[in-house]
Computed example of a mutant assay.
Amino acid sequence: VSRQVQRGLNLREEIERPKFLERLPVYRSLADQVTVIQGTPEESAKAIFVQLRGVGRPIADIF
């Protein structure tokens, strides 16, 4: 929250902190996915897409 407040967007910590704490479980669930690729951006996107398929239903195919 401190980092966001320091961005100069007139954010106030007492308002932003509750929002961050409410969203934290979502952030943590998404951060569990790590993909390390040495390849093209297209190969990286495909690998991430395949990994995320196991998490939930994809919105659309990207390739």
Rank of each mutant, 00 (worst) to 15 (best):
S44G: 09
E13C: 10
K19Y: 14
I15D: 12
A47I: 04
D32F: 05
R57K: 13
L30I: 06
F49G: 02
E14G: 03
E14W: 14
V34E: 13
R12A: 14
V50K: 08
Q4M: 11
L30N: 07
T35Q: 15
G56E: 08
P25Q: 08
Q38C: 04
I48E: 02
R28E: 11
L30T: 07
P41R: 00
L9Q: 12
E42V: 01
I15W: 11
E16Q: 15
G39Y: 00
L21V: 02
Y27R: 01
A47T: 09
N10V: 11
V50L: 07
E42M: 01
Q33M: 13
G8E: 04
G8I: 02
I15R: 12
K19M: 08
L11Q: 15
R7V: 06
L24H: 02
D32I: 05
I15E: 13
F49T: 03
V34H: 06
R23P: 01
T35P: 04
T40A: 00
S29I: 04
V55T: 07
P58V: 10
L30C: 06
R17N: 13
E16P: 04
Q4E: 10
G39N: 01
P58R: 06
Q6K: 11
K46H: 08
T35L: 15
R17S: 14
V55F: 13
E14M: 08
G39L: 00
A47D: 03
G39V: 01
Q6C: 03
G54N: 11
E13R: 15
L21N: 01
V50N: 05
G8V: 02
P18E: 07
L52M: 09
V36D: 09
Q4F: 12
R53T: 08
V26F: 07
Q51W: 11
A45H: 04
D32E: 09
N10R: 13
G39R: 01
L9E: 12
V5H: 12
A45C: 09
E42W: 02
T35A: 15
V36W: 13
K46R: 13
K19A: 14
